[in-house]
Write a protein that binds this DNA or RNA. Structure first.
Lengths: 66, 66
DNA sequence: ACTATTTGTAAAGCTAACTTTACTTTTGGT
DNA sequence: ACCAAAAGTAAAGTTAGCTTTACAAATAGT
């Protein structure tokens, strides 16, 4: 799984902490997703898509390992 | 989280077992998602979206409890 | 009515998602 | 160089996703 959360965050000028607060998760959760330590739940993915006003498919992309 | 997997499956005339096999999960996983016992990972959501050729947002919708 | 397929569900077990706390490293501004 | 904010990371604990096995209930075809 690749993701473009860091980019989305940069576009909106949000810190990891800002974003975490907006969607109701811990900052480490955002960090861990960005750095690929784990894949979010669909609920989180949909919330991120809402914040960035982008489709989930644009934010998250499957790779060979998935 | 609401989802429209049962509908997508009906459109393509796939059994839960068929669908499960196509995306590489157990039949119970599909059943559990359909019956709302749990929410899939983003990886699974993207794969389901691929099979049904529909955006994730169309297949999965947040509700108040999320 | 009989049989086969599909669906629903449950229990036990494993792994991954997520939390909190806490510390280090990096980046940016002055 | 100094300080503050942001980002990275780690450990321990809890919960949720997913597996396998197994069985019961519902649906469909003949």
């Amino acid at each position: 799984m690749k993701n473009r959360i860091k980019v989305g965050r940069a576009e909106r000028d949000l810190s990891q902490a800002d974003l975490a607060e907006r969607i109701g998760v811990s900052r480490q959760t955002i960090n861990s997703i960005e750095t690929g330590r784990y894949v979010p739940s669909t609920i989180l993915a949909l919330k991120l898509a809402q914040v960035f006003e982008k489709p989930v498919e644009e934010l998250f992309q499957l790779d060979e390992t998935d």
